[in-house]
Write a protein that binds this DNA or RNA. Structure first.
Lengths: 141, 141
DNA sequence: AGTTCATTCATACTTTCGGGTGAAGGATGG
DNA sequence: CCATCCTTCACCCGAAAGTATGAATGAACT
């Protein structure tokens, strides 16, 4: 922030010097106020855009890692239960229904029931779509 | 873009009016050039930052967080052909083999062949795993 | 006590996937 | 010209996934 203000100050000083220099060098003493304002406006708009980008990049860069949090609100709004969410998560990791059943210590039929309900709630027809949708909705990493 | 330029023009005009108004109203005829420049610089820096953010937001939002480029090197190192990559991409969007076949104007059998070869090359057993793996390897968005 | 809901499981049936194999046409490159 | 690879397609078969329906249990809430 300090550095930014410093840059602005220096830029402004340099600009004034340049303008004064131009003014005296060409002996055009009556360069209009509008001209100065126009030049300064354009220049500092550019500066603003530039620094604006830098600032937002700094905000975005650390967030790009996406710490990730499951969107509990959306989860509830879709009426997805804990167990269904577990099945969904394992699904997204590429496990088969049988593998999911083994991991959760339930039967294959149970996993099928959960996944079917899941597809209804997510309004999809296949597990691949469910995974897509769930990731969009930030229900899974 | 047009609108942006227009906004700048209007803002500049308004600013000049305001400054002139202040100048005459208080009969302070010798407000220094530096003062004008400073005010304009600060104002347009703010405008620049604001518009800069708007512009970059538009660039960031559709491209999500990651600009994303498919890793052609990896693609070749895995010996994945164009057609196979197309199938992979559609797979990742949640389409069934039949839907992919329709989209690519080929038979279901052809899509099966491509996907089977894909699974071999990616060393996976299911399409969900293939999608996972392909995303990790940046073969698809 | 009764209702609601999550969880569990089953049976039966259909659809989709995936593996294995073979084969034909076309493009590429030695 | 021949080898190789890509692309296309076919058939068969088994495995996995998904649909439909029903039902039992237990926790939670009213």
């Amino acid at each position: 922030m300090f550095r930014t203000i410093l840059i602005y100050g220096v830029a402004l000083a340099v600009l004034i010097f340049v303008l004064k220099f131009i003014e005296y060098r060409f002996l055009v003493r009556d360069l209009s106020l509008e001209f100065y304002l126009g030049v300064v406006a354009v220049l500092f708009t550019v500066v603003g855009i530039w620094t604006g980008n830098r600032l937002t990049r700094k905000k975005i860069a650390p967030g790009s890692d996406t710490p990730f949090e499951i969107d509990e609100q959306t989860l509830r709004s879709f009426g997805i239960s804990k167990r269904e969410h577990e099945v969904l998560a394992l699904m997204a990791l590429g496990f088969s229904n049988q593998e999911i059943a083994d991991k959760l210590f339930v039967s294959l039929n149970t996993v099928k029931t959960h996944s079917s309900n899941l597809f209804l709630k997510l309004d999809v027809k296949r597990r691949t779509q469910a995974i897509q949708r769930a990731k969009e909705l930030r229900l899974i990493p």
